[in-house]
């Protein structure tokens, strides 16, 4: 529906990719680990290899969680915008089909947070 207005009403999006100085936004949430209250937002270069998310991006965000050191990255299950997703860690974000403001989750089977509380 359109906005009820006295004249034609158009909004200008404030979050388009061209406003992020070459980066694209990627959201990442760790399933069963709600000590991190919400998924994270990261501005990432589209030509960055997906593997850098695992090696360089996530350690800074969630590395102090007691489960982090136990993650077996080969068994991690990813989703992208709610759909199952198998990333190629050596390919870039763009070549993995990642677009601006895509939302990833990852589940770490067997790891369900502090005392199994999804914390």
């Amino acid at each position: 529906m359109s906005v009820a207005a006295v004249t034609e009403y158009r909004g200008t999006p404030k979050d388009t990719q061209d406003q992020f100085h070459g980066a694209q936004l990627t959201y990442i949430g760790w399933i069963d680990h709600l000590m991190f209250c919400a998924p994270f937002a990261f501005p990432l270069p589209p030509d960055m290899p997906f593997g850098a998310i695992v090696e360089a991006v996530l350690p800074g965000a969630v590395g102090t969680h007691p489960d982090f050191a136990s993650i077996d990255w080969s068994s991690v299950e990813w989703t992208k915008n709610g759909e199952p997703f198998t990333p190629d860690l050596s390919a870039s974000l763009a070549d993995n089909g990642m677009r601006h403001k895509d939302s990833l989750t990852f589940r770490t089977p067997g790891l369900t947070g502090v005392k199994g509380s999804s914390t």
């Binding site: 359109s2 009403y9 909004g11 404030k14 979050d15 992020f20």
Partner: peptide, 17 residues
């Protein structure tokens, strides 16, 4: 009313910009 909310000034995005 998408035209209204596409303009949202989201603090996190504004910081990254």
């Amino acid at each position: 009313e998408p035209e209204k909310y596409v303009q949202a000034w989201l603090p996190v995005h504004q910081i990254y910009q």
